[in-house]
Amino acid sequence: MSTAKSTPSAAASDAAIETRGLRKSYGALEAVRGVDLRVAPGETFALLGPNGAGKTTIVEILEGHRVRSAGEASVLGHDPAAGERAFKERIGIVLQSAGVDPFLSVEETLNLFRGYYPRPLPLDDLLDAVGLRGKRRERVRRLSGGQQRRLDVAIGLAGDPELLFLDEPTTGFDPSARREAWEMVEGLKERGKTILLTTHYMEEAERLADRVAIMARGRVVAEGAPSELTQRQASTIVRFRLADGAPAPPGGLTAPLEGEGGGHTLTTTEPTRDLNLLTAWAVEQSIELEGLSVSRPSLEEVFIGLMGESDAEGAES
């Protein structure tokens, strides 16, 4: 869980990334259908969603790799579609997959890319940031998959960018490699970098991001801090069981009580009031609400709920 949160400033021009009504279509297919985003400097922002939701298309528009079909986009005050050199000097890009010459060494590769920027990070800093110090003279083709991915990140950092794009940085990683990658990204956050990352792992967004935009079918369906998203989503879930022969639960709850005898579930937006009513009733009846639990939906439950709504919407249209 991330604890440090930067507060977006009021003035629009201060945003690291800002889009309004961003759209991208490929022929008849609309990959991005009107997206508004605002990422503050120093913030780590995650685009979360299933494959095909439009995450990569958005990131590639913001990187300057794609030209938007409609809408506005401003990245560090530049129009990314203009492809200006001054813009490219300030950003770092880690694509989902991108090659480097397999016959160059780690050190040579990083020096090659460092040479493209006016104020590159020192080589040793780069190697340390991604934990490749011990591999500096190794040929790229002899690196493991995880090490090559770390080299990708180091290349993205070569120019000491203000803004770093990470497109699915841990897809295909095993759990321990993923944890290492997360620690690496947390290190970058501490250096004050603004980070835009895409992921389809809930856990990743929850751990790394200050704010998350959940995407489905080219739209943002929810946005906020991970904790806000879980709070905003409907409700609190109250669960309990009643012993055999207990009287029927009371009426007057703010939401319908689901389930019978064995296990009851109440999904409520007014948990305090409903709990008060339930517990007062139980005390009066001298019975126990067995296995009573009060919980928030996880980001995963929020996500699945939103995907369900979006699917229903998609089926209607």
Partner: peptide, 17 residues
């Protein structure tokens, strides 16, 4: 091969013309 491997795209995202 550079194009398929993503090398061209990667370099396009840097200040190198």
């Amino acid at each position: 091969f550079s194009r398929d491997g993503g090398l061209l795209k990667r370099v396009r995202g840097t200040p190198l013309p």
